[in-house]
Amino acid sequence: MGDTLSYFRQDMLPHIWCPGCGHGTATGALVRAIDRLHLDKNKVCIVSGIGCSSRAVGYLDFDTLHTAHGRALAFATGIKLARPELKVIVMTGDGDCTAIGGNHFIHAARRNIGITTIVMNNNIYGMTSGQYSPMTPKGFFGTTAPYGNVERNFDLCELAKSAGATYVARATSYHVPLLIDLIEKALLNPGFSVVEALVQCPTYMGRKNKIGGPVEMLNWIKEGTVNVKAAAALPPEKLKDKILIGELYNKQEGEYTADYDALIARVQRKYDKFQGGLYGCASNSD
């Protein structure tokens, strides 16, 4: 086990998250996965959007980028394409990623660009104090769903798979060893990896829905999930309303920036006799 704290900007700790917030646990899981792989701190860029979860990057001792709400994946795409040799990680929340950031999530997955996305899903907007999010289950309460949420949420992992992500997994802040294993494998996948971490927000999700404090919420998360391997042997009625955790999809395909580098090599070979120089550029406007 490596020295976890050596991955943090310790002068920034203790962090701002509420007592018992699952974002701290998920952040710790990412750091421990990075540690297992002995990644070079100078070659890791962590990008986040806006929200409680996105404050994580400020505490981590890497090149870190705290961007605009929902745009982390678009910023990260720019970094990864500009410097494919960097390990680019995105830390985002359920609102940041699936609401305002949904479009960039779908297209980053479609491109299969080499970015590992950790979606810290606490089923609510925490930073703005308790509004429901696209991942809030139907019927649950939030400050903007005072009579119960009438909207349905979608299965982020199924969305990621169908959009083209080549590694998709889900774990929780209860099943931390599993979460670390899955993040480690996600980081090893050259293409677009998604790890959804179901985490507890005791301050709003727990309170607004009378689930309880951090401990009760972790038990609630534990009760509501079942490992995909175990689920295979369970009768359907046992799986009703259960959320599958574990590795859900893993099939390596051509990674976007590698394919683009191959394109550059191909083009430059074809144009090695490129005497046109700057002004010999093709003008394709006619």
Partner: peptide, 19 residues
């Protein structure tokens, strides 16, 4: 990119990466 927001975001990312 998928829209102009993504476009400028990617450019800022690339600029931060030194390009």
């Amino acid at each position: 990119m998928e829209d102009e927001i993504g476009s400028i975001a990617a450019c800022i990312g690339a600029s931060l990466a030194g390009k």
